[in-house]
């Protein structure tokens, strides 16, 4: 039998090992690039293009995703209808299957008669990046938002209704403000996930330098040409974005925990 002290030590040792594992990985990236090289690489035309393209596409994909995911998650949380369990189950699929498979699915769709109507706008084009990012984050955001709406007691809406609100008014005057923590979390996680999206993007939009070159694709392209400095710069930018997002979620998560 494991004693209390041994169990505590094992748990703490596991935590320390995991922490060190990630620290060593990050430090190994930094060891390949000095401050001067990093700045010069960050200011290179290619990396600036990647940053700009990633920011634009991730922001558009996240905005579109939130516009659809908020009402969709509300419907899943509040309404009872035939086929709800099937829809709920299907929405787990994009979370469970690899993004590269999702991207391949999109590519196959654009080879069908219906898909061919739109294929020139999406396949190997920038809108394809946005669509690929949307495909990856849409279900994720809906799931986070559904959990958020589930956590807002329906009785608030009942009270709002008796005070004169229509269903829609009770949604935006009461439920949405009470769900703001979850909304911010869903938007931030989706945006970060979209910024780092590679698999679906490379399948649908390809990896064309200075055209569909988002930051993850810049990492991959520079790996192909063994440009470790540029690759490291792109990695560090994505790590910084991830850390900033985590800080936002933790800061506002604490501030709004009472609500």
């Amino acid at each position: 039998m494991m004693g209390d002290r041994s169990f505590s030590l094992l748990a703490l040792a596991s935590l320390l090992a995991l922490f060190l594992f990630f620290c060593v990985m990050l430090l190994s990236v930094l060891s390949h690039v000095g401050p001067r090289e990093l700045i010069s690489s960050l200011l290179s035309e290619e990396i600036l293009f990647s940053i700009r393209l990633s920011l634009i596409t991730a922001t558009i994909a996240t905005s579109a995703c939130m516009v659809i995911a908020i009402p969709a998650a509300y419907a899943l949380s509040r309404f009872d209808f035939t086929g709800k369990k099937v829809i709920d189950f299907i929405l787990y699929l994009p979370i469970g299957i690899p993004p590269v498979a999702l991207g391949a699915t999109l590519l196959i769709f654009f080879s069908t008669p219906l898909g061919r109507i739109f294929s020139t706008r999406f396949v190997f084009e920038v809108p394809g990046i946005i669509l690929a990012q949307f495909a990856v984050i849409g279900a994720l955001a809906t799931k986070i938002l559904k959990a958020t709406f589930d956590g807002v007691d329906r009785e608030y809406e009942s009270v709002a209704r008796t005070l004169g609100c229509t269903k829609f008014q009770s949604f935006y005057k009461v439920t949405l403000p009470l769900a703001k923590n979850g909304l911010l979390t869903a938007a931030t996680i989706s945006w970060v996930r979209a910024m780092g999206e590679f698999g679906a993007t490379v399948m649908l939009a390809g990896a064309v330098r200075m055209k569909t070159e988002t930051l993850p694709i810049a990492i991959w392209l520079n790996l192909q040409t063994a440009d470790v400095v540029k690759m490291s710069s792109a990695i560090l930018i994505l790590v910084s974005v991830g850390l900033a997002a985590l800080a936002i979620i933790q800061k506002f998560g604490r501030r709004w925990s009472a609500i």
Partner: peptide, 10 residues
């Protein structure tokens, strides 16, 4: 007025 009042916390 429900049992736990449901005052809007925002």
């Amino acid at each position: 007025v429900p049992q736990d009042y449901k005052l809007f916390p925002h």
